[in-house]
Design a protein around this nucleic acid. Sequence first.
DNA 1: CCTTTCTTGTCACTAAGTGACATCCTGTCT
DNA 2: AGACAGGATGTCACTTAGTGACAAGAAAGG
Lengths: 219, 219
Amino acid sequence: MEPRKRGAGGMSEQRRLRLRLEISREAARLFWEQGVAATSGDQIAEAVGLSTRTIWRHFRSKEACAEPVVMQGVVTLMRALRGWPREVSLEDHLAAELGGLTRENAPVDFADEMLAMKMIRLADTEPALRTAWLMACDQTEGQLRVVIGERLGRPDDDLEVRMAAAAAAAVVRVLDEHIGAAILGGADLAEFADARAVADRLARAIRTATGGLVGDPVA
Amino acid sequence: MEPRKRGAGGMSEQRRLRLRLEISREAARLFWEQGVAATSGDQIAEAVGLSTRTIWRHFRSKEACAEPVVMQGVVTLMRALRGWPREVSLEDHLAAELGGLTRENAPVDFADEMLAMKMIRLADTEPALRTAWLMACDQTEGQLRVVIGERLGRPDDDLEVRMAAAAAAAVVRVLDEHIGAAILGGADLAEFADARAVADRLARAIRTATGGLVGDPVA
DNA sequence: CCTTTCTTGTCACTAAGTGACATCCTGTCT
DNA sequence: AGACAGGATGTCACTTAGTGACAAGAAAGG
């Protein structure tokens, strides 16, 4: 645990998130390579070049170390949804957002997306990771409540808004699990390269789950 | 930790579940009274009259001790759904099941339901309990997949079945959180005494979330 | 340059969980 | 009834997750 490069004084929120992600990457890699139980906090700390104490300053538990990486699996979609203009349909907006992604402007690394899929796959057998995945989905549900709430002109804690957000988050999660499993299972990447098709699938799932409440342009 | 009454030899599955529930009750009570962090495994063990070691034999972690109680919050509904005949509509079946409940034949204690609500309320501020609640909902989602799968004549792992189950479980969860918060907040119990009204609410939410796929009688 | 503030490292410590082994309970076989 | 087998529990030693307290270093601002 030699004194490596330190954090900056007055650490910005962005820097904080980047550090969390960096730790999470190493943790996820170790979890995947040797299992969660066999990975110790000390190992994670050594892999990322920090003291063990600092790991626990940034994460409340070992499993929580996986959350930022796991979250990368849905962050692209959430970013797209947050910028959804009122006068555009869900299909069109998602197709435009997802179609406009290149390796440069992509908000998340492709490697991170693969890592996220691996964590979700691991979650099938490791209950500790299952909780991390569910917590990540819970976060996105909270963000969805805001998006849907302001789109419908209702408060976030409105019961219908909450149900719509929960249902939408749930189908997105299942779709995510399905696509991730397919890719890890060796499916052809090209199958998911058609932005329009993927956007339509997502949009239709969300429309269905919300009973048509979310999807159309609103005045 | 004096030697109190022991478990039976050749412990049946039912006995095992009862013991887990008993431990969970004490754990939940302590969590509610003094918080999760302030409650130690030793305290739980002493409260239930077992050795600490035995607690860890039945639960993989401290937070997991809350799961059985938390699960009581949805077990009544799940039991009703598992016995849903194909030729009956969701509204009618739920109304009949929920209406036929008395203090005697109720599958779960009223005290347990209150405890469950308290745990769910605690989950708002205690991330450890949030994971327990989400894991419990995840369990119900798995059971819902079976119910919906055989009702639709499709395998449990069919994508549409999974999405429908996830969406349904999500709205049920939100409704559960909402009703629980209302009751704990001092709402009139009588508001939820009308089985027909509650059944209709649940059924409508499930119909909406599944895009009408689940709810009608099937041939 | 100096101060203030924030983060990290070190170290001691509490508590969560596990392994191993002896013990005790209970159902079953004779 | 008495012996036996299987399983669950208690005890104890031990590993590891996670925290508190304090000193040291690094940036930002004057």
